[in-house]
Design a protein around this nucleic acid. Structure first.
Length: 493
RNA sequence: GGCAUCGUGGCCGAGUGGCUAGGCACAGCUCUGCAAAAGCUUGUACAGCGGUUCGAAUCCGCUCGAUGCCUCCA
């Protein structure tokens, strides 16, 4: 019996705008696709938040006992810079500026992306396909859509015919837009004269002679449109209809809308059963943007090399900070917020360490069953990690009281408490304990124990000047002494 | 201008038509040589204006503000 059989999970489906009971297409198995990064620069912190939300969701599915195929692509081709760039591929553009091969740029930033995600303790997806590795599949889909007459060719490019599609299908159902509104609101843009209608989008773009990234196709040398790769890769690995498609809120339109259109045009069915969208990250109340300087790279948070935050913060603290907000809410990052999260994170980890040292008793003053149910109820309610964390702090409080000997816990309950707590903290939330390896070093703890002993001697002799000196010096090194009933312990901050 | 997601106490951030979120900060107390840590106790809310209701911060309308998107841009 798997855990998921006893849990009812609800997911907010962007398509319906409602929370729906989640039932996978095939019992026990879940197919999930998340739009990955474009690897033409360092990964954006906001992007990390989106991926982290889906990492948590992936982790919870696995925790529930589901077999999950999680596909997250790497976009290494297909994005255009803007109209002024004459249809030049974004990656090719950057490559010329830096005098690098396009694939060299892709490699550099793919490595950066993986490095940062590893620091954040992400689980790797099941498949991480690249757009350039699926050109053939994309061409096949274009052929299919052309056959069904939902697309047309013009001068070596192929465009999706939105108006025609809209006659039999509903273009705009995900983002709540109506084609008529879009038509009346369209701005005048350059280089659109090939399209029948401004709403049409490219499935295949003809490559100009200077364009480096190019592939042969039935319509001449060119490259695929941006929306197509996700359709090709998601359906290839997950089937024509699959359970979950996720991404940032910003991708809802046009990207995800176009994905729906492409899939419905090519195989007649709606590709995704549950659409999930993660919300944006702001900093100091404003959107993060390089142009205004209101921007920070993940690596700069970890190193402290920035003029926005007062100190470095560990990846796990940043993760804890992000998990304290619901994935569908806008989250605001600030120095104060990170400082608060750091303290909360530390308190949580200290309590986890303390469980093993609790005395077992014949009975428990803590209702483990009902607490455990509350934890699962929080996660089952559209992955409500803030509520889960609030529940975890109920346990933290109990552990601290029990540590003082004021309440008790039975031996079996102690095992369950630890198992559930660790399960949620490490497995589901993906947090990490003491990252400072020094804390585990025998040498360090030997030295600190010695100092604690010396301080105790000084205190016994009422030599408080010496005892305070030891305490304060250690504190300035980031080692905190805690005087308890049964002597002094320490923790490395 | 249109569409979408929001607007909660000093800060971050959940939630609900009437019943404690939680973390951090602040104050008092316990413990302590003094602190720290931990515990206990307490305070400050639901953008504004209308409406529905016995009752709304929670539902509806409008206003203001934030963020994203509006065709090739995460």
């Amino acid at each position: 019996m798997q855990l998921y059989q006893s849990q009812t999970l609800k997911i907010h489906n962007s398509l319906s705008g409602k929370k729906e009971v989640f039932k996978p297409l095939n019992e026990g198995h879940i197919g999930m696709y998340v739009c990955g990064p474009t690897v033409y620069s360092n990964v954006h912190l906001g992007n990390c938040r989106t991926f982290m939300s889906f990492d948590m969701i992936f982790r919870y599915f696995k925790h529930l006992g589901y077999k999950v195929r999680y596909v997250r692509n790497i976009t290494d081709a297909g994005h255009l810079v803007d109209d002024a760039e004459d249809g030049e591929d974004k990656i090719a553009k950057k490559a010329r500026l830096e005098k690098l091969e396009p694939m060299e740029v892709v490699q550099r930033y793919t490595v950066d992306f993986h490095n940062i995600l590893q620091k954040f303790n992400f689980l790797p997806p099941s498949i991480e396909p690249t757009a350039t590795g699926h050109i053939i599949e994309q061409i096949e889909i274009i052929k299919d859509i052309l056959d069904k007459e939902f697309a047309y060719e013009k001068n070596g490019s192929v465009y999706f015919d939105v108006s025609k599609f809209n006659e039999k299908h509903e273009y705009g159902k995900l983002s709540g837009r109506k084609l008529e509104d879009m038509i009346s609101n369209t701005r005048a843009l350059n280089a659109q004269e090939e399209k029948k209608n401004p709403q049409d989008f490219a499935l295949w773009k003809k490559a100009e002679p200077q364009h480096i990234m190019r592939w042969p196709s039935p319509w001449g040398d060119g490259f695929p449109g941006w929306h197509l790769e996700c359709t090709a890769m998601s359906t290839k690995y997950l089937g024509e209809t699959f359970d979950i498609h996720g991404g940032g809120m910003d991708l809802k339109f046009p990207h995800h809308e176009c994905e729906i259109a492409q899939a419905e045009a090519s195989n007649g069915q709606s590709p995704v059963r549950y659409w999930m969208h993660a919300n944006m990250l702001t900093m100091n109340g404003k959107k993060m943007a390089k142009s205004t300087g209101n921007n920070i790279l993940p690596g700069e948070i970890f190193s402290g090399d920035n003029n926005i935050l007062s100190k470095p913060f560990s990846p796990s603290v940043v993760r804890f900070f992000m998990m304290q907000a619901h994935y569908t809410s806008i989250l605001d990052l600030s120095n104060d917020a990170l400082l608060a999260s750091e303290k909360g994170h530390h308190k949580l980890m200290d309590a986890l360490d303390a469980i093993d040292h609790l005395e077992s008793s014949n009975s428990s003053d803590f209702d483990i069953e009902s607490w455990k149910n509350d934890c699962y109820a929080a996660m089952n309610d559209d992955f409500n990690t803030p509520i889960l964390i609030a529940k975890l702090f109920d346990a933290v409080k109990f552990i601290n009281i029990a540590k003082e000997g004021k309440q008790s816990i039975s031996a079996p309950d102690k095992i369950i408490l630890k198992e559930i707590l660790c399960g949620f903290v490490f497995e589901v939330l993906g947090l990490e304990g003491k990252t400072d390896e020094a804390a585990d070093s025998d040498k360090l703890s030997g030295v600190v124990e010695l100092l604690i002993q010396l301080r105790k001697d000084a205190r016994d002799n009422k030599d408080f000047a010496t005892s305070d000196k030891i305490r304060d010096q250690l504190a300035s090194l980031g080692i905190q002494l805690k005087d308890g009933k049964d002597g002094t312990t320490f923790s490395v901050l």
